[in-house]
């Protein structure tokens, strides 16, 4: 069952890479948050109960509720609907994302002794999620899309930390939580400030600082 949730989590990345509607991006984040919650709750009994409790509450509360709420608020405030100016067409996005996800699956079926410490399915999909997110950051044009891909990357890293089949130090969990704070910080402070200062949310408008021009 856990593997099913992990595969569904991977598929949300395909959905993210093919849609330009920002509302759909936020919905995908909600789905990822719920799936991560289910993965934590259902499949990781090798950890102490208090760590599982912390992780499940954190994922459900922060990843599935708080961050999407924040994002929806920003979407309403900025009247943003779509990120239509991605550098690559949707078809190619889907193709490349599928190839990366397929690579993730391949990692998960490899039978290598050095992979004995990890849950292969979790590891493969997490790696694919991180790579797809990094790639999507480079092709999307809206600042908000970049923030959403950053959060999906964080989700991928969270899944990666779950893939290690041993008790992770509590510090690592605190680290994950701190990353979420960074995401909220970026969202809450900068996105609204950039919108106020520049009037829109295009990455292209954040390219004034160059070596060849005179910046007072």
């Amino acid at each position: 069952m856990v593997n099913g949730f992990i595969i569904l989590f991977g598929l949300t990345m395909l959905y993210l890479s093919t849609t330009s509607r920002l509302k759909a991006h936020v919905d995908a984040l909600v789905a990822q948050g719920i799936l991560l919650f289910l993965i934590c709750a259902a499949g990781f009994h090798h950890m102490p109960w208090f760590i599982i409790l912390f992780l499940t509450i954190e994922t459900l509360l922060v990843k599935a509720i708080l961050i999407p709420l924040f994002l929806n608020k920003v979407l309403k405030k900025t009247h943003l609907k779509r990120d239509t100016d991605a550098n690559i067409a949707h078809f190619y996005c889907l193709f490349i994302s599928s190839a990366i996800l397929f690579g993730g699956f391949m990692v998960s079926v490899l039978d290598i002794p050095s992979l004995s410490m990890i849950n292969p399915m979790c590891f493969g999909i997490a790696l694919a999620t991180i790579i797809i997110s990094l790639w999507l950051i480079t092709i999307k044009q809206k600042i908000l899309s970049n923030v959403i891909e950053f959060i999906t990357m964080e989700n991928g890293i969270f899944l990666l930390s779950l893939s290690v089949a041993k008790e992770m130090p509590m510090l690592v969990n605190i680290g994950v939580l701190l990353d979420v704070f960074i995401a909220i910080y970026i969202l809450g402070l900068f996105v609204s400030q950039i919108n106020k200062e520049l009037g829109d949310m295009e990455v292209a408008h954040l390219s004034d600082l160059k070596d060849s021009e005179n910046n007072d």
């Binding site: 990094l134 950051i137 600042i143 970049n146 950053f150 990357m153 964080e154 890293i157 990353d179 960074i182 910080y185 970026i186 900068f190 400030q193 950039i194 200062e197 520049l198 954040l206 390219s207 004034d208 600082l209």
Partner: peptide
């Protein structure tokens, strides 16, 4: 300064992640 801070936070956050 907004541009610089945004690049700083975003790039460094990805790096730290």
């Amino acid at each position: 300064s907004i541009e610089a801070a945004w690049k700083y936070v975003f790039i460094c956050s990805i790096g730290i992640a």
